[in-house]
Design a protein around this nucleic acid. Structure first.
Length: 418
RNA sequence: GUGAGUGUGGCGAAGUGGUUAACGCACCGGAUUGUGGUUCCGGCACUCGUGGGUUCGAUUCCCAUCACUCACCCCA
């Protein structure tokens, strides 16, 4: 147990961490292009924030939060998602004082107490963007495009954007009522899951894989949410679509798309790759800021699952070769060589070359194999004769060429070749 | 949370109620001794997830537990 990580957590080891860094770099770079700025908020917040911000009746709040009492008897919760904390920071620091809409992004660990499976850990990681202070449909389109840009830069292929509008506080309740009115009389013919969905979130019934439920929806003529939008929402949704088209962003309408968090209004979307669960998703949330105690402020954002994006990326990029990791590997053949090695290594490193050596006293042959394994470009052989002459045998591992040089010349040589 | 499956050396993977648990890869050493990615020879390494129980005896049978995988739920 001592040597076993907690369930649903992962060690990100060398070899994998490079992929994480690449993703993080892509997020930062693309966000810069769209003039989004990074924000870092605490990993835990007052439990209340999530209860109010994410929604009391969501699965997240009802059964997935990591909640604990601290020594001061405060109820705190490890953040299950990123938006609530960002909104809290926005309100607390009065960022709404800005004339412009505030464009923020974040990156970091999130926590949900769930049964782990592929692409679903208890500590997982998201990157996400939020825009606070504008309900311009152009913002919706821009945010949708932004993540597509990130995924594209990373080389994720075949990403489809699924788009829907889930209405607002005016039209959604009406739609919900209508759904319930039509389905309640035949509720006993719905599957078990859908019977509970009917009261909580009837929209989800459209997502049920059970054919009889789908047939029942048709039979009772249940309206989709997009068909029930109020004029304002309809216009907004139309404008978002034209903006996306104008930006050359492909999307497909999915009238059944529902997002899990209660706070979404109007635009809701997901990024899906065939054969995988959605790798990112977002939505507009026009009531969250007020919900959390700030001034009535519209917001919109998305979050991407880092593990999920990397999973797709890995599956799609089989057989990509690694880059050389080391410029120089010092092979020592005897005590004289081993003693001189440190000095040669430091000289090389101070010149900006990545350099390493053997510390296990292994044979020359084994040291060469090690140099190969870590893809060193050059090997410098140091033995008594070299040390006495103040020289090294420098071998290019790719070409097999080996030359006898002074240390300075050898280090100079490192900057040449590939 | 529900259902199913899996858990043997660093990795992959055989195996049986009973003396020293195969093999492959990797790793280490050697092949006239200071040179790599091929070959040959030799070697190191396993509390058989963990804890109980049955048994003269269990890695192999039973129970529990932990972890992982898959599906559902839900989500990133």
């Amino acid at each position: 147990m001592l040597t076993q990580r907690p369930r649903g957590t992962a060690d990100i080891l060398p070899g994998a961490v490079e992929h994480w860094q690449r993703l993080e770099t892509a997020v930062r770079e693309v966000c810069r292009l769209y003039n989004f700025q990074e924000i870092r908020t605490p990993v835990f917040e007052h439990t209340e924030l999530f209860a109010r911000g994410v929604g009391e009746t969501t699965d997240i709040v009802e059964k997935e939060m990591y909640t604990f009492m601290d020594r001061g008897n405060r109820s705190l919760t490890l953040r299950p998602e990123g938006t609530a904390g960002v909104v809290r920071a926005y309100v607390e620091n009065k960022l709404y004082g800005n004339a412009d809409a505030v464009k923020l992004y974040y990156l970091g660990p999130m926590f949900r107490y769930e049964k782990p499976q592929k692409g679903r850990d208890r500590q997982f990681h998201q990157y996400g963007c939020e825009v606070l202070g504008s309900e311009d449909p152009a913002v919706d389109a821009e945010v949708i495009a932004l993540n597509l840009h990130i995924l594209d830069n990373l080389g994720v292929k075949d990403v489809a954007v699924e788009l829907n509008s889930v209405g607002c506080s005016v039209c959604r309740p009406l739609h919900k009522e209508e759904m319930i009115r039509r389905l309640r009389p035949v509720a006993d013919r719905l599957c078990e899951d859908c019977q509970s969905r009917l009261e909580r979130n009837p929209l989800r019934i459209f997502d049920c894989k059970n054919e009889s439920c789908q047939a029942l929806l048709v039979e009772v003529g249940a309206p989709t949410i997009v068909d029930s939008l109020c004029d304002d929402c309809r216009n907004h949704f139309d404008a978002v679509q034209s903006a996306l088209t104008a930006m050359n962003v492909d999307f497909r309408l999915n009238p059944h798309l529902v997002r899990g968090l209660d706070y979404y209004t109007r635009t809701a979307w997901e990024y899906v790759v065939e054969g995988y669960s959605s790798i990112a998703g977002g939505g507009r949330y026009n009531s969250v800021v007020a919900q959390v105690g700030g001034p009535e402020t519209p917001g919109i954002g998305f979050a991407g699952g880092i593990e999920r994006v990397l999973m797709v990326l890995e599956a799609q990029s089989q057989g990509q070769k690694e880059q050389p990791q080391l410029d120089l590997y010092v092979v020592t053949v005897d005590d004289a060589g081993r003693q001189a090695a440190a000095s040669l290594l430091q000289k090389a490193r101070k010149q900006g070359f990545a350099a390493d050596r053997d510390y296990l006293g292994r044979s020359v042959k084994a040291q060469f194999k090690a140099a190969d394994r870590i893809r060193a470009r050059y090997v410098a052989v140091l033995g008594e004769s070299e040390v006495e002459a103040g020289r090294v045998a420098l071998k290019n591992l790719a070409t097999g060429e080996q030359v006898d040089l002074t240390w300075d010349d050898a280090i100079h040589q490192l900057s040449k070749g590939v």
